[in-house]
């Protein structure tokens, strides 16, 4: 399977184009940027992986694309979200409701709480279907059964009548995926979709997402803290730190030659299953909170390579090798640990 080698037609318009997108947190007089001028594109049938630790802004970014940031205190501070060429940022709430669940849908981390416990699984899928189409209830029901079958739920005719509490975590996540795919969305945002699941179930869900992507051509934004999951699923990767993109590359290039000290640090602090390691190389310190971000490069207090330039000037995200962008003044100095 060479799904990651799919060549994107030159000049093809991306399904989703994010330009200079920013989200801010406003509390009292202090304004702190959570997502700071982020740029990336997602193409049809491809998966973009967003990696970062908690507090790096990856979840706010995904909520921001859907215009679902909890406001107040957060608000979209600027930039464009172009879905098939139309900007979503100026859209009204009503227009957004047309987009959400229809052209962009989302699955969340917690399959235990994202389904409504008082309705059957079938009802919830049918609800999602009928919100954006003119299906009759009989049609919607048979489509719901088909969807459940597509996401690998055995005996879908029976499962459609089940309440969420009767299903395991993995099953619920499958149902969530069925709901998300109900209207054949252009973009699927998956925010840590397997973090709450066991490894063997995670493997099932990742498999499912991969086969669905190749069948439907939906573009996927996969958000995860787990570099393993990203390596497994993504075609392109964005690494975020303190609200900014610090490295952006095709997946093979990123894992073959991680160039930002933070990406290197993340890989160095991950214990691997294959092979023994002498000692883990953790990144010292912690992620700075949004209201207290350091000047210059946000990573400099934790970086071995930092010098005067890093403390005062913010490095731009620049293309170093073809397609591989890094925001670091010292790129090329550090090899993969």
């Amino acid at each position: 399977m060479n799904d990651d080698k799919t060549i994107v037609a030159q000049g093809a318009r991306p399904v989703l184009d994010i330009r200079d997108f920013s989200v801010e947190l406003r509390s009292g007089k202090t304004i702190s940027p959570i997502v700071d001028k982020v740029n990336f594109e997602v193409h049809e049938g491809r998966t973009l992986g967003i990696v970062g630790e908690s507090g790096c802004g990856k979840s706010m970014l995904s909520l921001g694309i859907m215009k679902l940031v909890p406001s107040p205190p957060a608000c979209i501070a600027g930039g464009k979200v172009l879905l098939d060429g139309t900007d979503l940022v100026p859209c009204s709430e009503r227009e957004m409701q047309e987009v959400r669940g229809n052209r962009i849908s989302m699955i969340f981390q917690e399959p235990m709480t994202s389904l409504n416990p008082v309705y059957t699984v079938g009802f919830q899928i049918i609800e999602a279907l009928r919100a954006h189409s003119s299906l009759t209830s009989a049609q919607a029901r048979s489509r719901a059964i088909d969807l459940l079958r597509e996401v690998g739920i055995s005996n879908p005719e029976k499962r459609v009548e089940e309440y969420p509490h009767r299903l395991s975590g993995g099953m619920r996540q499958r149902v969530m995926i069925a709901i998300a795919l109900a209207c054949n969305p252009r973009v699927l945002i998956a925010d840590e979709p397997t973090t709450a699941l066991d490894v063997t179930i995670q493997a099932q869900i990742l498999d499912l997402m991969r086969s669905l992507k190749s069948d439907s051509g939906t573009a996927i934004i996969l958000i995860s803290h787990d570099l393993g999951v990203i390596a497994e699923m993504a075609d392109d990767v964005v690494v975020m730190y303190a609200g900014r993109i610090i490295e952006q590359a095709p997946v093979h290039s990123l894992f073959a030659a991680p160039s930002h000290p933070y990406t290197q640090g993340l890989l160095g602090s991950m214990p691997t299953v294959d092979g023994d390691q002498e000692r883990l190389q953790p990144i010292p310190g912690t992620v700075p909170p949004p209201h207290d971000r350091p000047h210059g490069c946000a990573f400099h207090p934790r970086c071995k390579l930092s010098d005067e330039t890093c403390r005062t000037q913010r490095p731009p995200l620049e293309e170093k090798i073809s397609g591989h962008k890094v925001a670091c003044w010292h790129t090329g100095l550090g090899a993969r640990p």
Partner: peptide, 25 residues
């Protein structure tokens, strides 16, 4: 064996060498 093979590796070339267990616990 299934547990070991199910762990996602930080290596894109490892893809689809997995044993995917069917069913739930």
């Amino acid at each position: 064996q299934a547990l070991l093979s199910a762990v996602p590796r930080p290596d894109p070339s490892y893809r689809s060498q997995r044993i995917v267990l069917k069913g739930d616990l």
